[in-house]
């Protein structure tokens, strides 16, 4: 049994897969350039593990972000053959025997190799007031918690699954064209709070939604929802917010604030 397993393992190890990484080290490279590596192929090896193999055995200078290795921390986003993916959730077996090209997430400035500058994305997440704004501030702890039925939770649960990986910003052609767009994840997060029965901050957040840079920069391409590794469906969140914004517009016509 065990010898058989070792043989099978051996046969697999003999195969190699080619990985090309877009390198960029700002202190020495004028512009990004591709560098090829060949590593032993395992069907159960993730892209992140492949990068770790390269860093441990071939070139210790390759930079990339990671932490949880299980699609929870959202730090390992990168372009795999030009499609935004989580390195820990994409596997070599889906590409072998073809070459795999890895690049930093599109639409973000490159900090170094596969590491991008996420500042604009984080700023947008903060701007939409991503916290519950209760009806009245002074509810005392002794009065207990804010309660919610399963139906009330269902209304926003899906939009609360975001891990802030930024894949949707990388996929969004509108964000690519105009960085002032609030963008998919931030708007999905905004919808998550506006749809929460414990929250009373909708009016404040609708001001962000109603802007050109709010939901109205979106042309419903839908690629954000395709690449999202957590099934958040930001495109649907934005469409729902467009309907809300239209209602808000009508109300605003009769009752300007």
């Amino acid at each position: 049994m065990s010898t058989q397993a070792t043989h099978a393992q051996q046969a697999v190890v003999d195969k190699v897969i080619e990985i090309e990484i877009l390198r960029y080290r700002p202190e020495q490279d004028e512009k990004p350039f591709p560098q090829g590596f060949e590593i032993p192929y395992h069907p159960d090896m993730s892209i992140l593990e492949a990068l770790q193999y390269i860093k441990d055995h071939l070139d210790s200078s390759v930079s990339f972000r990671w932490s949880c290795r299980m699609a929870i921390c959202g730090s390992c986003g990168l372009m795999v053959n030009n499609i935004p993916k989580l390195g820990c959730k994409a596997f070599l077996r889906d590409y072998y025997p073809q070459k795999v090209t890895l690049e930093a997430l599109a639409n973000f400035p490159i900090e170094r190799d596969l590491v991008v500058v996420m500042d604009d994305f984080i700023k947008k997440l903060e701007e939409i007031k991503p916290y519950i704004i209760p009806e009245r501030d002074e509810k005392c702890l002794s009065e207990g918690t804010y309660q919610q039925t399963p139906e009330q939770m269902e209304k926003y649960a899906k939009f609360s699954m975001c891990i802030n990986c930024g894949l949707c910003y990388s996929a969004c052609p509108q964000y690519g064209l105009d960085k002032s767009f609030t963008g998919p994840a931030a708007l999905a997060l905004l919808a998550r709070y506006n749809r929460d029965s414990r929250d009373a901050g909708s009016a404040e957040r609708m001001k962000i939604v109603n802007q050109e840079q709010g939901v109205w920069s979106c042309t419903f391409v839908g690629y954000c929802s395709v690449v999202c590794p957590k099934g958040v469906d930001p495109a649907a969140a934005i469409q729902l917010l467009k309907v809300e914004s239209s209602k808000d517009y009508l109300i605003g016509m009769f009752k300007p604030d």
Binding site: K207, N210, Q211, E212, W216, K242, S246, Y249, L250
Partner: peptide, 12 residues
């Protein structure tokens, strides 16, 4: 300052 877009009319 938040500027409201007129897009809802055209989107409708």
């Amino acid at each position: 300052k938040y500027i409201r877009s007129n897009e809802p009319v055209f989107w409708g």
